[in-house]
Simulated assay, not measured.
Amino acid sequence: MNCVDLLARVIEQVLSVGKLLAAEWDRPDGPRGSGDKAEVDVEIEVALRRELLALLDCDFWGEETGRRLTGHEFCWVVDPNDGTSDFLLGRRGSAISVGLLQNAVPVLGVVYAPVTNDRGPDCISWAKGTGGVLRNGQILLHRLEHLELAIGSKLLVSTAAVNKAELNAKLCFPAEFIPMPSIAYRLARVAAGDAVAGVSLVPVSAHDIVAGHAILIGARGVLLNQLGNPITYESEAYLSKSSLRCFGGAPRACQELSRRNWDELFIAP
């Protein structure tokens, strides 16, 4: 399987279903759904599942349409709208996330945010064999392996960070924290050079992170769990709950972040 050739076709499918997400955002009465469930999520995943399995008929792990695990070498991992809750609250930056595992290792990722605050439609991708991360069709030469937390660097965190801004500022120091929906999009933007690391402080499953993880690999980055260990996907249990917290980006920065006392944020005032 040539992942480079496959990537172009996956991007085409993701951009196509991205029109559904953008149209949902533009509905006069707002997106359909409540809480963390939007009707468009299922519509997008049904379309993606059909088209991705037509490209490569293998195992499938989806957030909305369930899983098919047969022991195949390859497995598609899909989140049709990572950041649904924020999307339904009117916050820009949720993203379609499509990853591909080969023997439990990420080898392809596409993360597409059709509606953003600062960039317009933004598609970030990578596949094993490409020369680097792609952003909206342009190859990037950005690499993460030598970056560290420093004054002026940025951390991408969840939108909940604004509720305890002072404490988050302390925990992220010396970096500046920037809240945004979608851990998949945070990880992809880190790989594209927008920040030194992306963080999730709540449990994540494979559909949340595999695509972003793949793109980080393309930028020589890492994805670590709450213990500072590399996140893996070699069992159904790890696909279901990949980590309790995750830190993706520059290796030294992520190691340092994993050692900080994030529990402070969850102590009731």
Score class of each variant (00 low, 15 high):
residue 1 M to T: 13
residue 2 N to M: 04
residue 7 L to Y: 00
residue 8 A to N: 15
residue 12 E to N: 14
residue 18 G to F: 01
residue 23 A to K: 05
residue 26 D to P: 13
residue 29 D to K: 12
residue 30 G to A: 10
residue 34 S to N: 09
residue 34 S to K: 12
residue 43 E to K: 14
residue 47 A to K: 13
residue 52 L to I: 09
residue 63 E to F: 03
residue 65 T to E: 11
residue 65 T to K: 09
residue 66 G to P: 03
residue 71 G to K: 01
residue 72 H to E: 14
residue 76 W to M: 02
residue 78 V to E: 00
residue 79 D to K: 02
residue 85 S to D: 11
residue 88 L to F: 02
residue 88 L to C: 06
residue 92 R to S: 04
residue 93 G to L: 07
residue 96 I to R: 10
residue 97 S to C: 04
residue 100 L to W: 00
residue 103 N to A: 10
residue 106 P to C: 12
residue 109 G to V: 11
residue 109 G to W: 00
residue 109 G to P: 09
residue 114 P to C: 12
residue 123 C to M: 10
residue 123 C to F: 06
residue 124 I to Q: 13
residue 129 G to E: 06
residue 130 T to V: 11
residue 132 G to S: 12
residue 132 G to T: 11
residue 134 L to I: 11
residue 134 L to M: 15
residue 141 L to H: 15
residue 142 H to Y: 10
residue 143 R to T: 02
residue 143 R to C: 01
residue 148 E to G: 07
residue 160 A to C: 05
residue 162 V to F: 04
residue 163 N to E: 08
residue 163 N to A: 13
residue 165 A to K: 06
residue 170 K to R: 10
residue 171 L to G: 00
residue 174 P to K: 07
residue 175 A to T: 04
residue 182 S to C: 02
residue 184 A to V: 06
residue 186 R to H: 05
residue 190 V to K: 00
residue 198 G to W: 06
residue 200 S to K: 09
residue 205 S to C: 11
residue 211 A to N: 08
residue 214 A to T: 10
residue 231 I to H: 04
residue 236 E to W: 04
residue 238 Y to D: 11
residue 261 N to T: 13
residue 262 W to P: 04
residue 267 I to W: 00
